[in-house]
Amino acid sequence: MAGKEKSRAKMEQAKGKAKEAVGRAVGNERMTAEGRAAQSKGDARQAKEKGKDAFRH
């Protein structure tokens, strides 16, 4: 389960970075903001998983 969540976090971060880059290239502020939000969501998920790992070991 933890591996699945970690990979999901990485995927959200990568997807967010890509969306932000496309938004900047096109000049679409909304897409840029959505990309940043997806990155933040991935960062939060990753931090949660790291916290779980700290208590497991």
Rank of each mutant, 00 (worst) to 15 (best):
A38C: 06
K10L: 06
S40E: 13
K4M: 12
H57A: 15
A44E: 06
Q39A: 04
A14C: 06
A21R: 00
Q13A: 04
H57P: 11
A54Y: 12
E12M: 05
E34V: 06
K6P: 01
R30Y: 15
H57C: 08
K50R: 15
K52A: 13
A2P: 03
E12S: 02
A2R: 07
D53G: 11
R45H: 10
A18I: 12
A47E: 14
E20C: 03
G42C: 05
A14M: 04
A54V: 14
Q39Y: 06
K52C: 08
R24I: 08
V26L: 07
G27R: 13
H57K: 13
M31W: 07
K17H: 06
R8V: 00
K41C: 03
K17R: 11
A38L: 11
A21P: 01
G27Q: 15
A33D: 14
M1C: 08
N28L: 13
G16L: 01
A18P: 00
K6E: 05
K41W: 03
K48A: 10
K10S: 05
R36S: 03
R30I: 15
G51A: 15
A9P: 00
K48M: 11
A37R: 12
T32G: 02
E49K: 13
N28D: 15
K19V: 04
S40A: 10
G16D: 02
G23L: 07
